[in-house]
């Protein structure tokens, strides 16, 4: 599965267009991580626990999008976008969406 955020895959030709696919996940923060973040919050800097949490969640959303595309018979997703929205104080939704297509080698 090839992902890009432009309208094409370099070196490939689009042969079929299968429509929009998306994947999302809603994550709440972890209490342990929140305590650590609370301490780190005093001195500033990177909150590693949160960076990891968001990376994992975004990967999961991407994975869900990819499995949807695979189920449609696609072998690439183009124009991938990410979005984040805060649902409540402790929960955030991460979403990935794109266009599923079938590509083949450009000869």
């Amino acid at each position: 599965m090839i992902l890009t955020n432009i309208e094409q895959v370099p070196g490939k030709r689009i042969v079929r267009h299968l429509g929009l696919v998306n994947g999302n996940t809603v994550r709440a923060k972890h209490v342990g991580r929140d305590i650590m973040a609370g301490l780190k919050n005093l001195v500033g800097g990177e909150l590693t626990g949160y960076t990891e949490l968001l990376t994992e969640s975004r990967d999961l959303a991407t994975q869900r999008m990819v499995s949807e595309a695979e189920a449609m018979g696609a072998n690439a997703v183009l124009n991938v976008r990410f979005s984040t929205s805060t649902i409540s104080q402790g929960a955030a939704e991460l979403m990935a969406y794109g266009t599923a297509v079938v590509i083949e080698d450009d000869l």
Partner: peptide, 16 residues
Amino acid sequence: RSGALVSGNVVVSVDY
């Protein structure tokens, strides 16, 4: 020849 999605993220906080 080819392309693939890359990303980087970080959570940063200000101090007290």
